[in-house]
Design a protein around this nucleic acid. Structure first.
Lengths: 313, 313
DNA sequence: AAGTTTGATAGGAATTTCCTATGTCTCGGG
DNA sequence: CCCGAGACATAGGAAATTCCTATCAAACTT
């Protein structure tokens, strides 16, 4: 009976039933308990609240002023609690909830707006908070629980994480307008031999891929300056500091068909590309909403970006 | 674990503590319970809600999407419950609450507006719902719990009821303008001998008093038509169907000093009067607010009606 | 590899809730 | 005026829940 003692939900339920029924016996019956149990719980509630809620008289149970105040609030509280059960169920079934998605900077501006828009119309109560950043930072936030999902280039190498492949995004060769390859309709892997390849800084997933590619094809890596954004990289290419590979989504949207400050050349057969997938903690158990998200992304890729991207999985 | 099973407030409290602390051990400590107890209650909560709220991992306890939804609502619910405790305490101390007062029709228009106004400025959170009606109906509503208080003429004759005398209200003799007593400055009881006395219908407390008075003083009761309001009575008097006695408050306010359709004559020494008091169920235990109400009424009588009414008790 | 840290599990003690039986009070009928 | 009925409180013990100690399992740390 200490100072910060709270009434029990059960007590509030019983109290409401009592107020509805108007007397202890009927209320107890409607609750499926015995009359003494009800009397006791009501007495306890009054003890916790230190105020009489019910006037016991032959006219039955009459609410006191305190009882009336407590009743109206109790009804609200009980409804709130019931609604929590409903909410929990909805979230559990993937019909509702707010999820935090981290995405490489590339997707933020080009792909995700469509996804969010479509998601909002298909599942108005499923919300997505999107944060962008370097994939390595995003993955750390995913581990620490600050994010629920990450949309990023594969592969991702942790047994803690679950990955689903979504689509493949071709890379374009970007060269300055006066580069020897600038006029080519398309290129082969081997054409890169001897070129200086500009890359993003470590922490971006393109970094690792390009480093490997450079080694395989005999290109030289420009390591003195690593770009921190695709825009920066593009400008370096325009100034002829080297060549680079740009993801199709960025290339298509930001550089434009073929009139930008750099020339974009596709690889034959789309041989050079990166794979994009959705990643989450294995311990988050793949909630239904995650499937909804990947479905939405796939749908957007199919309906709006089928000329650029290739579905996978 | 049936369908309509509700989470426990304790579970919500524990869950909030867990979300705040970020891991089970610290949360259990902050709650003053052991870690297994906390684990168990959280597991039970998840079982009731049929959804995982917490992702257990080495990074500590991470909230799932469902957990985040449930958390925000839980916080609200817990605050609501805490506020109920506070509200109950305030009502118990008479600082807050809504009380239902029944009043004879006479007081509604003349006395109570001042009381309500003053009460509202002295105790803004104490509210009074006022209903008027025949005193007998009001008393029945008081018994049945539809009213908390009745302001009515005394005496009231039930051992179930508690009564506090508030003030005494003189009665005026009302006669038609051409009545033999119309010009008198004041009258004695005996002057009523032989007169035909008009009375309110049964159920009004004035009824009993006038019936008794008529018997004592040798006046004849006009029983064919009993008025259902003081206004009706007054009009019957004006038409010279008889005389009657009108309470001072009504007389003063409704008929005006001496230019109305009937002549109002005071009794010498205010010998004929009725006593007004506040009545409540003994079983309601005289809450502090009742004292506040009687104080307010007394204050209004003293400050605004001291020329008409006489304080008592 | 041993020691730490984190949460789950097991089994029994402590507390709470509930039930049956009984008590008190008041009412209404014989 | 007493008796039985109706309403709620009280008492004591049974049932269920909550909690604790002890122990386990898994994953870091050192």
């Amino acid at each position: 009976m200490s100072r910060d003692m709270l009434p029990t939900l059960r007590q509030l339920q019983y109290f409401r039933a009592l107020a509805d029924a108007g007397n202890f016996r009927k209320a107890a019956e409607s609750l499926g308990i015995s009359q003494p149990s009800l009397s006791q719980q009501i007495a306890n509630l009054e003890k916790v609240l230190r105020v009489a809620l019910i006037e016991r008289g032959r006219a039955g149970a009459i609410l006191t002023a305190a009882g009336r105040e407590v009743l109206s609030r109790s009804v609200g509280i009980l409804e709130d609690v019931k609604s929590v059960v409903g909410i929990a169920e909805q979230v559990g079934s993937g019909a509702l909830g707010t999820y935090r998605l981290g995405a490489s900077a590339t997707f933020g501006p080009y792909l995700l707006p469509s996804v969010v828009r479509q998601l909002h119309s298909d599942h108005p109560t499923l919300r997505l908070f999107i944060r962008d950043g370097r994939p390595s930072d995003l993955l750390e936030d995913l581990f620490s629980g600050r994010l629920d999902l990450v949309l990023s280039q594969l592969p991702v190498l942790s047994s803690e994480l679950n990955v689903i492949r979504l689509f493949r995004e071709p890379l374009f060769l970007a060269v300055s307008r006066d580069h020897r390859l600038a006029a080519r309709k398309n290129v082969e892997d081997m054409d890169l031999a001897g070129e200086t390849l500009l890359v993003l800084s470590n922490g971006f997933s393109l970094h690792a891929q390009l480093v490997e590619l450079a080694q395989t094809l005999g290109a030289t890596l420009q390591r003195d300056y690593e770009g921190s954004s695709l825009d920066a990289l593009r400008q370096m290419v325009a100034m002829n500091m080297g060549v680079t590979l740009l993801p199709a989504l960025y290339a298509q949207s930001e550089v434009g068909p073929n009139d930008g400050d750099v020339a974009l050349i596709p690889f034959r057969q789309g041989r050079v590309s990166r794979s994009i997938g959705l990643i989450w903690r294995r311990s988050s158990r793949n909630p239904p909403a995650f499937d909804a998200f990947s479905d939405q992304i796939r749908t957007v890729v199919r309906t709006k970006f089928s000329d650029i991207l290739h579905l996978e999985g």
